[in-house]
Design a protein around this nucleic acid. Structure first.
Lengths: 94, 94
DNA sequence: CGTGTAAGGAATTCTGACACG
DNA sequence: CGTGTAAGGAATTCTGACACG
């Protein structure tokens, strides 16, 4: 995934657009960042920039939260998943 | 292409970011729009939104202009190319 | 813990125009 | 024709804080 980065991982979308695309409030999106769930980049002047991957991640996060899962739990699960990906043979397509 | 739209065609990038990514001035980017070379969408409040496709197109436009081609010419060429694509069997990959 | 909101400031974008060549 | 710029206003984003549960 990190090597197969196309447009999906380019951080170019600002928070207002992300809010529209995900249905989440800007407050929520910023909060998940403090909880280490997403990692937007910043323009020189401090404006947050997100990728399409971030948007997908945010939607997952929202689903988990609706089910009552804590952000800390979500974070653990994401870490687990990343570790799994590292061991996996990179035969994953799309 | 219009059917195979992924993230590449989603209009979510604002002009400042497009300017950075292409190296063109905002003035130039807006001007090419008046010349019917690119067609950004607008947020409800009027902010222009571009796609990665638009960015690729802009880079092509810039190359043509450097060679002294007029915007009118570039526009004709783009039209020609679109017509060609319509006749083509969709075996195009990537 | 997760999220809403009002507050004040800084950065972004928009349009129409004057300018030059 | 293609592009720069100053001008004024509108929309966006940022942070830190108070609030509720």
């Amino acid at each position: 995934m990190p090597l197969n980065s196309t447009y999906k991982d380019k951080k170019v979308i600002s928070i207002g657009t992300v809010s529209e695309l995900t249905g989440l409030s800007e407050r929520q999106i910023r909060y998940y960042e403090t909880r280490k769930l997403i990692f937007p980049e910043r323009s020189k002047t401090g404006i947050r920039k997100y990728s399409f991957s971030d948007i997908e991640k945010l939607i997952e996060i929202a689903n988990h939260l609706e089910e009552g899962v804590w952000t800390a739990e979500i974070r653990n699960e994401m870490k687990r998943r990343e570790r799994a990906l590292l061991k996996e043979t990179p035969t994953t397509v799309t």
